[in-house]
Amino acid sequence: MEIVPQLILNSIIAGSIYALIALGFNFVYGATKFFNLAHGVMAAIGGYAVFYFAKTLGLNLYFAVILGVALAGIVGYGLDKFIYLPLRKRKASNMVLLVASLGAMTALQAVIAILFTSRFKTISQNIGTQKLFEVLGGVITQTQLIIILVTALILAGLVFLLYKTLFGKAVRAISDDEEVAQIVGINTNKIIGYVFFIGSALAGLAGILVGFDTGIEPTMGLGLLLKGVIASVIGGVGNIYGGVLGAFLLGFVENFGIWKISGEWKDAIAFTLLIVFLIFRPRGIMNK
């Protein structure tokens, strides 16, 4: 069997996961203009919530997923309400918000570890017995197919939300200039709160899907987040399409990179791509 079709598939799978994180991250960045490092932890919260509701309490799986997504959203909303919003009111700079989010990340991660221990857990019931599909001469599992579909759906959903609804209009106004948005009568703080809810819920969903595909651990967020940030920057930070484009580019470069270079250089490859972009196209693919 030829390796290239499988590598293409692998790149698409990896790209979809990065895209899920990048979508939520970019959505929040667009409105708030700061690097929210706590975004990754929302993925862990979603994953662990499903683990708890479905595996420990034995609730219906779909119900557990909905609860997990909601919980991640609520925690994200809470972070905004109690940390980021007061900081914004004090006119804190992006860097201050970034450091505060680092604190939130550290603390939340440890809380998860206290509640669930830090051992790696799986949330899929059928280990190794998943349905396999042959696509374009490569193999893909059912979960991975779902991940790709969900990514596409979410992208469509977010685009609809941003460009076809009143709420989206408000978000875009804030994105362009928060002060002006305030002057024309938009309750920016309320809108940003909702943005945090949606963005964090998306991260939670990403965490749940990763949990089904591989598994969950309290520190899973940071690795996911870094990939999401790289994807956002090379695609164009704050740009919904850019994040997705960057995610797939990153997926392809990583997977084709380790085809020729040994696997231990994977992270270095990802960050080299980032630096190349920062040098030659610092605003990313989509932004001018």
Partner: peptide
């Protein structure tokens, strides 16, 4: 770790 995070915040 929790204390460390909260102090940063």
């Amino acid at each position: 770790q929790v204390v460390y995070g909260v102090i940063l915040i």
